[in-house]
């Protein structure tokens, strides 16, 4: 009989082992009935615990769904009133929501009964890991037929790219030259978000992950603001009814400098732009090795 510790087997049941380690355990399971029975018992225990926790959550969600949430904007409840009425059994959920509203801030539509795991907070970076299929499906949703219209041959002509992207989002969008900042323009494509075109311009430095500039129709103008999305940092701004997002795995100072360089270039470009809106002549693409 092979000796495998409960530590190893629980880690196996919990999916905490590396693939090679899991395969090694599985090979043992095929030949050792005692270990196989132990793993089955641990799996059963694990499953019962998961079911127990699911049952509690189901009860809480049912309570939440049964209690209509106050949605009036600007709802203000005095703090004392909240404490007095707080935890009556039938109104527990409402009471808790009111506590959150008790300082006089408006409540945005919370939909908190639908998907407890989903982050309604744009700042929120959840601990729950999505699997690769979910991540890929979300990325797939950004693709449209137009994504493939900018062929590889066009990628060497920044003016032609700018014209195509500009036609889609309604404003000139020549890929900014970020060579002085150590970034080479790599390629561009047209994505789709919420049925609206979303331009993506990709840049690559000598090392590290790509930096992307996104542009879509947006607000008239807004100053650059830095925000972190998990491991990805972003600087967002709007200008001439186009919303921009510069994103990459960079620190705040570096990304803000890049954004400033792009914005400065846009101002210079505006001053020199020809107003006829005609497409630039195609030029031969650079020879590929």
């Amino acid at each position: 009989m092979t000796e495998l510790s409960d530590e190893l087997l629980v880690a196996y049941v919990d999916g905490q082992l590396a693939r090679k380690q899991s395969s090694a355990v599985e090979k043992v399971l095929e030949h050792d009935d005692v270990i196989a029975r132990r793993v089955a018992a641990l799996k059963d225990a694990h499953r019962r615990l998961e079911a127990a926790f699911e049952a509690i959550l189901a009860g809480e969600e049912a309570d939440a769904a049964a209690q209509p949430l106050p949605r009036a904007p600007g709802l203000f409840i005095a703090r004392d009133a909240l404490i007095k009425g707080g935890v009556a059994a039938a109104g527990i959920v409402v009471a808790l929501v009111l506590i959150l509203a008790g300082y006089g801030w408006p409540l945005a539509a919370p939909e908190f009964a639908s998907d407890a795991s989903g982050p309604a907070d744009p700042e929120h970076v959840g601990s729950l890991k999505r699997n690769w299929q979910e991540e890929v499906a979300r990325a797939q949703a950004l693709l449209s037929r137009a994504s493939l219209e900018l062929g590889r041959d066009s990628q060497g002509n920044r003016e032609l790219i700018g014209f195509h992207l500009g036609q889609a989002i309604g404003a000139a969008l020549t890929p900014p030259d970020l060579a002085p900042q150590g970034l080479r323009f790599a390629r561009a494509q047209l994505l789709s978000f919420g049925g609206e075109p979303l331009a993506q311009l990709l840049y690559l430095g000598t090392s590290g992950a790509p930096v992307a500039l996104y542009a879509k129709k947006g607000e008239a103008s807004a100053a650059p603001q830095f925000k972190r999305y998990g491991g990805i940092a972003g600087v967002a701004w709007s200008r001439d009814s186009v919303a921009y997002l510069l994103a990459g795995e960079r620190d705040e100072a570096s990304l803000l400098l890049l954004a400033e360089a792009i914005r400065s270039g846009q101002e210079i470009g505006d001053a020199a732009a020809a107003p006829d809106g005609s497409p630039p002549a195609p030029r031969p693409s650079p020879a590929r090795p």
Binding site: D63, A64, V97, A101, L107, E111, F112, A120, D121, H124
Partner: peptide, 11 residues
């Protein structure tokens, strides 16, 4: 946004 996030996680 913190408040909205907390509401979404109440259960």
């Amino acid at each position: 946004s913190i408040r909205v996030g907390l509401i979404s996680m109440l259960p």
